[in-house]
């Protein structure tokens, strides 16, 4: 049975027999390639090659140098670095058995987790209070993003000015609670990390706040209204509609903050230099001490690699999670697959 009956059939026959470029010879004899695909490829590779060249030129030698140092026992007191003796995995062994590094990792994870949760809870809370327009919204918004615009090292010094025992913060707390508050923000080994966390939270609440504001404001109204009409309380609407729809944004806010918190250096260093005791010896701080105070360049390099591996593992995991969320989100909102593909 022919595929097209009636007039369509005749059309088809007509087309098959009509003279075409194949038989007649095309007036334009360009090669049969795909213009757009070719242009895109050309564009793609010219852009990517720049990127790759820059990354390879800058980062590759750096990583190679780092690798060289990790396997050579270079001492700043023993001649040139290029003559250093090959020591195999000795440095790595030293690094992975170094209890100080273990503690530093634990502290960093603690610090990152704590400050991430702190930032998120406060940021999300503020966003929930603020995402609907109200009188003064712009004022609060501007005020709330200010900490993010403050240079971190300024925050560290300001912390020092504010947090000493007889300082303004304890003074204000005393007058609020009506009795002497004597928190040792800067000297208690048990809470020093918490102090850095407080500053980190103050600094980066705006990040979570901004993301969550955007997320909340972008939620479609209809499902929420529908849920309300169906008798859901505000709390139920929040838990069953808003929270699940916001999940990708939440995951993003948490992951980005967590990763940036692990890298935090200026505040912990200028306030405590690892002390009191070793209460604030986090990964970056310890690495700084080993490399720039002990001048153990090789051990520092091996440590950097170990940390790099841990970070890459964390980042890859984070990327995996983010991608899954993104795909889920795309499915929910059915983005314009056909036209952009």
């Amino acid at each position: 049975m022919p595929p097209f009956p009636g007039s369509a059939l005749s059309l088809l026959q007509n087309m098959n027999s009509s003279p075409t470029s194949n038989t007649n010879g095309s007036t334009k004899s360009r090669p049969r390639q795909l213009v757009q695909a070719r242009a895109v490829q050309r564009f793609k590779w010219s852009v990517l090659s720049v990127l790759i060249v820059v990354l390879v030129a800058v980062l590759f030698p750096v990583l190679m140098l780092q690798l060289y140092f990790s396997f050579h026992g270079y001492s700043v007191y023993g001649g040139s670095w290029w003559d250093a003796e090959f020591v195999g995995l000795e440095l790595f062994e030293e690094v992975v058995t170094d209890p100080r590094l273990g503690w530093a990792i634990i502290r960093s994870l603690l610090f990152a987790t704590g400050s991430t949760i702190g930032c998120f809870v406060i940021g999300f809370g503020l966003a929930l209070l603020m995402y609907r327009p109200f009188r003064g919204q712009a004022f609060y918004y501007i005020l709330f993003i200010l900490p993010m615009l403050t240079v971190p090292i300024v925050i560290a010094y300001t912390g020092e000015m504010l947090l000493y025992q007889k300082g303004p913060v304890n003074d204000l707390l005393s007058s609020i609670f009506g009795r002497q508050v004597n928190i040792l923000w800067l000297a208690n080994a048990d809470t020093a990390l918490l102090t850095v966390m407080v500053l980190e939270v103050w600094n980066w609440v705006p990040f979570s706040f901004i993301i969550m504001m955007a997320g909340l404001a972008a939620l479609p109204d209809e499902p929420i209204e529908a849920a309300k009409i169906l008798g859901a309380s505000k709390w139920r609407v929040f838990v069953e509609i808003q929270l699940p729809l916001l999940r990708p944004v939440i995951v993003l806010a948490l992951i980005l903050r967590f990763l940036e918190a692990i890298a935090e250096f200026p505040k912990a260093w200028s306030l405590f230099q690892g002390g009191p005791g070793s209460a604030t010896e986090t990964i970056p701080t310890y690495l700084y001490i080993v490399t720039w105070q002990y001048f153990e360049i090789s051990k520092g390099a091996a440590m950097s690699y170990v940390i790099l591996l841990i970070m890459v593992a964390i980042v890859l995991l984070a990327i995996q999670i983010l991608r899954r969320e993104k795909i889920g989100l795309d499915q929910i909102y059915d983005s314009r697959k056909e036209t952009t593909a």
Binding site: E260, Y288, I307, M311, V315, A318, L322
Partner: peptide, 28 residues
């Protein structure tokens, strides 16, 4: 020109603490 996976990997440039590379970088 970059897949979504590569786009996320690009984030790695930002997420690795600078302290990890700063010593060899200064040497380089």
């Amino acid at each position: 020109i970059l897949s979504e996976g590569r786009m996320f990997q690009l984030l790695m440039l930002r997420m690795v603490p600078p302290i990890v590379i700063v010593a060899p970088l200064s040497l380089y």
